[in-house]
Simulated assay, not measured.
Amino acid sequence: MALDNFYIPSFVESFLIVLMIEICTGVFTNVFIVVVNFHDWLRGQGLNSSDHLVVSLALSNFCFSCINAATIVCAILFSSIFLVDYVFYTLYSIMSYNIFSSSWLSAWLCLFFCVNIISFKHGCMARLKANITTVVPWLIFFSQVFSIVSSLPLIWTITKVFAPNSTNETNRTLRVIGYKINDTYNAFSLLINCFIPFIFVMVTTGRIIASLCAHARHMKQNMDDRGPSLKVHQGAARTMMSLLILYLIFYVVEIGLGFLSMMDPLYWVCFLLIFSFPTLQSIIIMNGNSKLKQTFQKLLKICRKE
Protein backbone atom coordinates (compact mmCIF):
# COMPACT_ATOMS: atom_id res chain seq x y z
CA MET A 1 0.00 0.00 0.00
CA ALA A 2 2.29 2.74 -1.24
CA LEU A 3 0.78 6.19 -0.73
CA ASP A 4 2.84 8.57 -2.83
CA ASN A 5 0.08 11.16 -2.70
CA PHE A 6 -2.54 10.33 -0.12
CA TYR A 7 -5.98 11.56 -1.14
CA ILE A 8 -9.38 9.94 -0.58
CA PRO A 9 -11.72 10.57 -3.56
CA SER A 10 -15.30 11.58 -2.79
CA PHE A 11 -16.78 8.43 -4.38
CA VAL A 12 -15.05 6.28 -1.74
CA GLU A 13 -17.85 7.13 0.69
CA SER A 14 -20.09 4.77 -1.30
CA PHE A 15 -17.61 1.95 -0.60
CA LEU A 16 -17.51 2.68 3.13
CA ILE A 17 -20.71 0.83 4.04
CA VAL A 18 -19.65 -2.28 2.12
CA LEU A 19 -16.19 -2.18 3.73
CA MET A 20 -17.63 -1.95 7.23
CA ILE A 21 -20.08 -4.80 6.55
CA GLU A 22 -17.17 -6.96 5.37
CA ILE A 23 -15.12 -6.08 8.44
CA CYS A 24 -17.98 -6.71 10.90
CA THR A 25 -18.76 -10.04 9.24
CA GLY A 26 -15.11 -11.02 9.41
CA VAL A 27 -14.96 -10.17 13.12
CA PHE A 28 -18.14 -12.17 13.83
CA THR A 29 -17.15 -15.33 11.92
CA ASN A 30 -13.65 -15.48 13.38
CA VAL A 31 -14.85 -14.77 16.92
CA PHE A 32 -17.39 -17.57 16.41
CA ILE A 33 -14.60 -20.03 15.53
CA VAL A 34 -12.59 -19.06 18.61
CA VAL A 35 -15.60 -19.14 20.97
CA VAL A 36 -16.78 -22.59 19.80
CA ASN A 37 -13.34 -24.12 20.36
CA PHE A 38 -12.84 -22.27 23.65
CA HIS A 39 -16.23 -23.55 24.86
CA ASP A 40 -15.22 -27.13 24.05
CA TRP A 41 -11.95 -26.62 25.91
CA LEU A 42 -13.81 -25.34 29.00
CA ARG A 43 -15.99 -28.45 28.90
CA GLY A 44 -12.88 -30.61 29.12
CA GLN A 45 -12.77 -31.60 25.45
CA GLY A 46 -9.17 -31.48 24.32
CA LEU A 47 -8.35 -29.54 21.18
CA ASN A 48 -6.48 -31.49 18.52
CA SER A 49 -3.78 -30.11 16.24
CA SER A 50 -6.33 -29.12 13.60
CA ASP A 51 -8.27 -27.10 16.19
CA HIS A 52 -5.09 -25.33 17.27
CA LEU A 53 -4.36 -24.31 13.69
CA VAL A 54 -7.94 -23.22 13.06
CA VAL A 55 -8.06 -21.12 16.25
CA SER A 56 -4.69 -19.52 15.49
CA LEU A 57 -5.86 -18.70 11.97
CA ALA A 58 -9.13 -17.26 13.30
CA LEU A 59 -7.27 -15.06 15.79
CA SER A 60 -4.96 -13.83 13.03
CA ASN A 61 -7.93 -13.02 10.79
CA PHE A 62 -9.74 -11.34 13.68
CA CYS A 63 -6.74 -9.04 14.20
CA PHE A 64 -6.62 -8.44 10.43
CA SER A 65 -10.29 -7.37 10.43
CA CYS A 66 -9.69 -5.04 13.40
CA ILE A 67 -6.63 -3.42 11.84
CA ASN A 68 -8.56 -3.01 8.59
CA ALA A 69 -11.30 -1.20 10.51
CA ALA A 70 -8.75 1.06 12.20
CA THR A 71 -7.11 1.81 8.85
CA ILE A 72 -10.43 2.72 7.20
CA VAL A 73 -11.53 4.95 10.09
CA CYS A 74 -8.19 6.77 10.22
CA ALA A 75 -7.77 7.09 6.44
CA ILE A 76 -11.28 8.33 5.65
CA LEU A 77 -12.42 10.15 8.80
CA PHE A 78 -9.11 11.25 10.32
CA SER A 79 -6.70 11.56 7.40
CA SER A 80 -4.44 14.01 9.28
CA ILE A 81 -3.94 11.43 12.03
CA PHE A 82 -3.40 8.69 9.45
CA LEU A 83 -0.41 10.59 8.05
CA VAL A 84 1.27 10.89 11.44
CA ASP A 85 4.45 8.80 11.25
CA TYR A 86 3.96 6.39 14.14
CA VAL A 87 0.26 5.85 13.26
CA PHE A 88 0.94 4.89 9.65
CA TYR A 89 3.99 2.80 10.57
CA THR A 90 2.05 0.93 13.27
CA LEU A 91 -0.97 0.22 11.06
CA TYR A 92 1.17 -0.88 8.12
CA SER A 93 3.43 -3.17 10.15
CA ILE A 94 0.50 -4.84 11.97
CA MET A 95 -1.36 -5.31 8.68
CA SER A 96 1.75 -6.86 7.11
CA TYR A 97 2.19 -9.14 10.13
CA ASN A 98 -1.40 -10.39 9.86
CA ILE A 99 -1.08 -11.08 6.13
CA PHE A 100 2.15 -13.01 6.67
CA SER A 101 0.78 -14.89 9.69
CA SER A 102 -2.40 -15.90 7.87
CA SER A 103 -0.39 -17.14 4.88
CA TRP A 104 1.85 -19.37 7.00
CA LEU A 105 -1.00 -20.73 9.13
CA SER A 106 -3.01 -21.59 6.03
CA ALA A 107 0.01 -23.43 4.64
CA TRP A 108 0.38 -25.42 7.88
CA LEU A 109 -3.33 -26.26 7.90
CA CYS A 110 -3.12 -27.65 4.37
CA LEU A 111 0.05 -29.53 5.30
CA PHE A 112 -1.76 -30.99 8.30
CA PHE A 113 -4.63 -32.21 6.09
CA CYS A 114 -2.18 -33.75 3.65
CA VAL A 115 -0.09 -35.52 6.31
CA ASN A 116 -3.10 -36.92 8.17
CA ILE A 117 -5.12 -38.12 5.19
CA ILE A 118 -2.42 -39.59 2.96
CA SER A 119 -0.60 -42.73 4.06
CA PHE A 120 3.18 -42.23 4.13
CA LYS A 121 5.25 -45.34 4.85
CA HIS A 122 8.79 -44.00 4.62
CA GLY A 123 10.79 -40.77 4.62
CA CYS A 124 10.42 -37.41 6.34
CA MET A 125 6.67 -37.24 5.69
CA ALA A 126 6.17 -40.50 7.58
CA ARG A 127 8.18 -39.13 10.53
CA LEU A 128 6.21 -35.87 10.35
CA LYS A 129 2.94 -37.84 10.40
CA ALA A 130 4.07 -39.75 13.49
CA ASN A 131 5.02 -36.55 15.34
CA ILE A 132 2.42 -34.14 13.96
CA THR A 133 0.90 -33.42 17.41
CA THR A 134 4.27 -32.21 18.68
CA VAL A 135 5.24 -30.40 15.48
CA VAL A 136 2.06 -28.29 15.03
CA PRO A 137 2.59 -26.00 18.10
CA TRP A 138 6.13 -25.32 16.92
CA LEU A 139 4.89 -24.52 13.41
CA ILE A 140 2.40 -22.04 14.86
CA PHE A 141 5.08 -20.48 17.04
CA PHE A 142 7.52 -20.29 14.11
CA SER A 143 4.97 -18.62 11.84
CA GLN A 144 4.18 -15.92 14.42
CA VAL A 145 7.80 -15.13 15.24
CA PHE A 146 8.86 -15.14 11.59
CA SER A 147 5.89 -12.94 10.59
CA ILE A 148 6.80 -10.39 13.28
CA VAL A 149 10.48 -10.43 12.32
CA SER A 150 9.56 -9.94 8.65
CA SER A 151 7.07 -7.12 9.20
CA LEU A 152 9.07 -4.92 11.59
CA PRO A 153 11.88 -4.01 9.11
CA LEU A 154 9.22 -2.62 6.76
CA ILE A 155 9.00 0.40 9.08
CA TRP A 156 12.58 1.39 8.26
CA THR A 157 12.02 1.01 4.51
CA ILE A 158 9.22 3.59 4.41
CA THR A 159 10.10 7.09 3.24
CA LYS A 160 8.00 10.23 3.53
CA VAL A 161 6.61 12.06 0.52
CA PHE A 162 6.44 15.82 1.00
CA ALA A 163 4.22 18.34 -0.76
CA PRO A 164 6.17 20.49 -3.23
CA ASN A 165 6.81 24.05 -2.05
CA SER A 166 5.21 23.31 1.34
CA THR A 167 8.01 24.78 3.44
CA ASN A 168 6.68 26.71 6.36
CA GLU A 169 8.80 29.82 6.69
CA THR A 170 8.19 29.97 10.44
CA ASN A 171 9.34 26.52 11.56
CA ARG A 172 10.93 25.30 8.32
CA THR A 173 8.89 22.09 8.19
CA LEU A 174 7.42 20.26 5.21
CA ARG A 175 3.90 18.92 4.92
CA VAL A 176 3.74 15.14 4.54
CA ILE A 177 1.28 14.04 1.83
CA GLY A 178 2.08 10.34 1.69
CA TYR A 179 4.53 7.51 2.14
CA LYS A 180 6.61 5.43 -0.23
CA ILE A 181 7.24 1.76 0.51
CA ASN A 182 10.58 0.32 -0.54
CA ASP A 183 9.64 -1.89 -3.49
CA THR A 184 12.63 -4.21 -3.15
CA TYR A 185 12.08 -5.18 0.48
CA ASN A 186 8.30 -5.24 0.04
CA ALA A 187 8.63 -7.68 -2.87
CA PHE A 188 11.18 -9.78 -0.94
CA SER A 189 8.98 -10.03 2.17
CA LEU A 190 5.93 -10.95 0.07
CA LEU A 191 7.96 -13.58 -1.77
CA ILE A 192 9.10 -15.22 1.49
CA ASN A 193 5.92 -14.87 3.52
CA CYS A 194 3.23 -15.20 0.85
CA PHE A 195 4.59 -16.97 -2.22
CA ILE A 196 6.34 -19.81 -0.33
CA PRO A 197 3.23 -20.57 1.79
CA PHE A 198 1.19 -20.44 -1.41
CA ILE A 199 3.50 -23.12 -2.89
CA PHE A 200 2.82 -25.24 0.22
CA VAL A 201 -0.92 -24.85 -0.28
CA MET A 202 -0.67 -25.64 -4.00
CA VAL A 203 1.54 -28.74 -3.59
CA THR A 204 -0.46 -30.23 -0.70
CA THR A 205 -3.75 -29.54 -2.49
CA GLY A 206 -2.46 -31.25 -5.62
CA ARG A 207 -1.28 -34.21 -3.54
CA ILE A 208 -4.69 -34.55 -1.87
CA ILE A 209 -6.53 -34.36 -5.22
CA ALA A 210 -4.22 -37.00 -6.72
CA SER A 211 -4.82 -39.23 -3.68
CA LEU A 212 -8.57 -38.66 -4.02
CA CYS A 213 -8.55 -39.80 -7.65
CA ALA A 214 -6.47 -42.88 -6.80
CA HIS A 215 -8.74 -43.71 -3.87
CA ALA A 216 -11.87 -43.41 -6.03
CA ARG A 217 -10.37 -45.79 -8.62
CA HIS A 218 -9.45 -48.25 -5.87
CA MET A 219 -13.03 -48.25 -4.53
CA LYS A 220 -14.47 -48.86 -7.99
CA GLN A 221 -12.18 -51.80 -8.58
CA ASN A 222 -12.48 -53.45 -5.16
CA MET A 223 -15.90 -52.19 -3.97
CA ASP A 224 -14.56 -51.58 -0.48
CA ASP A 225 -13.03 -48.79 1.58
CA ARG A 226 -9.81 -49.93 3.18
CA GLY A 227 -8.11 -46.57 3.05
CA PRO A 228 -9.17 -43.20 4.47
CA SER A 229 -12.82 -42.31 3.99
CA LEU A 230 -13.63 -40.93 0.56
CA LYS A 231 -15.77 -38.23 2.20
CA VAL A 232 -12.80 -37.11 4.31
CA HIS A 233 -10.70 -36.87 1.14
CA GLN A 234 -13.40 -34.88 -0.65
CA GLY A 235 -14.00 -32.50 2.26
CA ALA A 236 -10.30 -31.78 2.70
CA ALA A 237 -9.82 -31.37 -1.06
CA ARG A 238 -12.70 -28.86 -1.27
CA THR A 239 -11.37 -26.85 1.67
CA MET A 240 -7.82 -26.79 0.34
CA MET A 241 -8.90 -25.98 -3.21
CA SER A 242 -11.05 -23.11 -1.91
CA LEU A 243 -8.12 -21.75 0.11
CA LEU A 244 -5.86 -22.08 -2.94
CA ILE A 245 -8.26 -20.10 -5.14
CA LEU A 246 -8.79 -17.49 -2.40
CA TYR A 247 -5.05 -16.94 -1.98
CA LEU A 248 -4.52 -16.79 -5.72
CA ILE A 249 -7.15 -14.04 -6.02
CA PHE A 250 -5.67 -12.23 -3.01
CA TYR A 251 -2.15 -12.18 -4.45
CA VAL A 252 -3.31 -11.08 -7.89
CA VAL A 253 -5.32 -8.23 -6.36
CA GLU A 254 -2.44 -7.27 -4.06
CA ILE A 255 -0.09 -7.03 -7.04
CA GLY A 256 -2.70 -5.13 -9.04
CA LEU A 257 -2.91 -2.42 -6.36
CA GLY A 258 0.67 -1.46 -7.15
CA PHE A 259 -0.33 -0.47 -10.69
CA LEU A 260 -3.49 1.47 -9.85
CA SER A 261 -4.04 5.06 -8.73
CA MET A 262 -6.10 5.91 -5.65
CA MET A 263 -8.28 8.00 -7.96
CA ASP A 264 -9.23 4.89 -9.95
CA PRO A 265 -12.47 3.21 -8.72
CA LEU A 266 -10.88 -0.16 -9.54
CA TYR A 267 -8.29 0.56 -6.81
CA TRP A 268 -11.06 0.64 -4.21
CA VAL A 269 -12.77 -2.42 -5.68
CA CYS A 270 -9.47 -4.23 -5.07
CA PHE A 271 -9.56 -2.94 -1.52
CA LEU A 272 -13.03 -4.45 -1.10
CA LEU A 273 -11.67 -7.81 -2.22
CA ILE A 274 -8.67 -7.64 0.13
CA PHE A 275 -10.80 -6.65 3.12
CA SER A 276 -13.18 -9.55 2.42
CA PHE A 277 -10.29 -12.02 2.81
CA PRO A 278 -10.71 -12.74 6.59
CA THR A 279 -14.45 -13.31 6.13
CA LEU A 280 -14.12 -15.61 3.14
CA GLN A 281 -11.32 -17.62 4.72
CA SER A 282 -13.30 -18.12 7.94
CA ILE A 283 -16.37 -19.23 5.94
CA ILE A 284 -14.24 -21.77 4.04
CA ILE A 285 -12.83 -23.14 7.30
CA MET A 286 -16.26 -23.31 8.95
CA ASN A 287 -17.73 -25.11 5.95
CA GLY A 288 -14.90 -27.66 5.98
CA ASN A 289 -15.04 -28.30 9.75
CA SER A 290 -17.97 -30.50 10.82
CA LYS A 291 -17.97 -29.23 14.43
CA LEU A 292 -18.06 -25.58 13.42
CA LYS A 293 -20.58 -26.22 10.64
CA GLN A 294 -23.01 -28.07 12.92
CA THR A 295 -22.72 -25.47 15.69
CA PHE A 296 -23.38 -22.64 13.24
CA GLN A 297 -26.43 -24.46 11.83
CA LYS A 298 -27.79 -24.90 15.37
CA LEU A 299 -27.22 -21.18 16.02
CA LEU A 300 -29.14 -20.30 12.85
CA LYS A 301 -32.07 -22.51 13.91
CA ILE A 302 -32.20 -20.81 17.31
CA CYS A 303 -32.16 -17.37 15.69
CA ARG A 304 -34.99 -18.34 13.30
CA LYS A 305 -37.18 -19.59 16.16
CA GLU A 306 -36.74 -16.34 18.02
Rank of each mutant, 00 (worst) to 15 (best):
F78N: 10
K231E: 10
L299W: 12
T173K: 01
S151A: 15
D40H: 10
T170D: 00
N5C: 06
R127A: 07
L128G: 02
P265M: 05
V145P: 00
S80E: 14
E254N: 09
L174W: 09
P265S: 07
S150Y: 07
A187D: 14
S93E: 05
N116R: 11
L280W: 06
Y179G: 12
L19Q: 12
A214D: 15
M1E: 10
L174E: 12
T184L: 14
I208K: 00
L83M: 01
F259S: 08
V87W: 05
L154N: 13
V232F: 03
L109K: 08
K301L: 12
P153F: 03
S103C: 15
I283K: 03
Y267C: 09
M241V: 12
I33E: 01
V201Q: 14
F15T: 05
Y251N: 06
K180M: 02
I72R: 04
Y179H: 11
P197T: 04
L42W: 07
L174Y: 13
A163L: 14
F6Y: 09
V253N: 04
Y7G: 01
S50G: 10
D183F: 03
G46M: 06
Q281T: 08
I285L: 13
S211C: 02
Q294C: 08
R43Q: 14
I155P: 03
I249W: 02
L83E: 00
G256P: 01
M95T: 12
A69N: 01
L139M: 15
T173L: 00
G258V: 04
S65Y: 07
R238P: 00
I284G: 01
S49L: 05
H52F: 10
L47V: 11
M223S: 09
I117G: 04
T134F: 12
H52G: 14
S79P: 02
T173A: 00
L42A: 03
L152V: 15
T133Y: 09
T167W: 08
F28M: 05
A130V: 04
T71W: 10
G256M: 13
Q281S: 11
P228R: 06
P9T: 10
H122L: 05
N48A: 09
V31L: 15
A58G: 11
T25W: 11
R207E: 07
G46A: 11
I199V: 15
L292H: 01
A163E: 15
L273Q: 04
F6D: 05
I148A: 14
V54D: 07
V232R: 13
Q234H: 14
L109G: 08
S60E: 03
A130K: 14
K298C: 09
C213A: 04
T157L: 02
M125Q: 06
T173Y: 00
F120R: 08
T204R: 06
I181P: 05
I117M: 06
I72S: 07
W41C: 09
S96A: 13
I21Y: 04
I81W: 11
C303V: 15
L47C: 15
D85Q: 08
L299I: 02
M241A: 15
F250L: 08
Y179V: 11
I148D: 03
H218A: 13
I255N: 07
A236D: 03
S211G: 14
I148L: 15
W41G: 04
L272Y: 01
Y97V: 05
C74I: 01
A187M: 11
P197Q: 04
F250T: 07
I302T: 11
F32P: 13
M223A: 10
A70I: 13
G206S: 05
V31I: 14
S96Y: 09
A69Y: 05
H218I: 10
